[in-house]
Design a protein around this nucleic acid. Sequence first.
DNA 1: GTAAATTAGTTGGGTACAAAACCAATTTAG
DNA 2: CTAAATTGGTTTTGTACCCAACTAATTTAC
Lengths: 170, 170
Amino acid sequence: MKQDALSRSAETDSASQRKGAANENVDFGPLANWVGFHLRLAQTASFQAFVAEAREIDLSPGRFATLMLIGRNPGISQTALAVANGRDKSTLTPILEDLERRGFILREKLKTDRRSYQLTLTDTGKKMLEQLTACAKRHDDNLDRIIGVKDRAKFIKILQKITAEIGHDD
Amino acid sequence: MKQDALSRSAETDSASQRKGAANENVDFGPLANWVGFHLRLAQTASFQAFVAEAREIDLSPGRFATLMLIGRNPGISQTALAVANGRDKSTLTPILEDLERRGFILREKLKTDRRSYQLTLTDTGKKMLEQLTACAKRHDDNLDRIIGVKDRAKFIKILQKITAEIGHDD
DNA sequence: GTAAATTAGTTGGGTACAAAACCAATTTAG
DNA sequence: CTAAATTGGTTTTGTACCCAACTAATTTAC
């Protein structure tokens, strides 16, 4: 029920004298019931799976969300993009540079405010976004299968609630 | 229903002439329904909140899980620890070095297999673990309040299912 | 026995991220 | 209009992570 890469090695391992700290027998203590811990594990796993799914295309999940947000909000600024994306604006600098270099996006200075950029997708970018969308859909269908259609909405709602409310010690 | 960290800043921001790409009006497109995206946002938020909660103590969530696992499984090896922790063993190298340097853990070579280390907590380490446990409990209670006691078990179960099943394309 | 394969841990190279300090353009106060 | 504050974006610095290549210890094959 909880086989990771580990159980494989335990089975492969004919010698049973594993010294008390093998995989299945690890005691997680209170960790086993802590949301944050499982959140991290699930996020990591899902991320990895996405990367695998999108292996043929050479664009990470982070890039994907970025493209999607630009596609949906043409003219968006880097700061707004960062906020929507839940990342620091400084994180976006190299990502956007890369996306521009690869010809997926355009960065035009605003006439009215020459500090800020106006981000839009190029045609190539739009094509890429379509590919990625298909790919992400496959990935998400997988998640659907695992979560179950019935619980999905509720699950997402809880995730959103966590994002919105935690740390905002109201 | 979908306020992120963003809405806060939008409220703080008295000037309402945000130029069309502000926070609330961002169109997330299909992203809004994708589990992976929300998983990332929630994980990041939860992580940040933990760090804030544990600010007085100077130990990150990752360190915390590591300490807990060693405390619960004295003598565990670095590799087993990495697996349980869902991280690469190479990631643990500097972390364990740090924990050892700070006097929280002991790393003893096994007599029977001089390649591997046997990890245990020192008394200081045990004290620290207790502090952290209390701190993590506060953090988790917060999450509890957000998720609701009723849904918590189910939520965790789904997270585990994702961790276990995704990528194992059966 | 020695050679090949395996295993525990480390090192090096690279990505993704945040925080703080910074620059330049713009707005606000006086 | 000028000085101060604010804002959009970049740079720098530091952490956390993975992967692939490596070393040393141990096991397996012959």
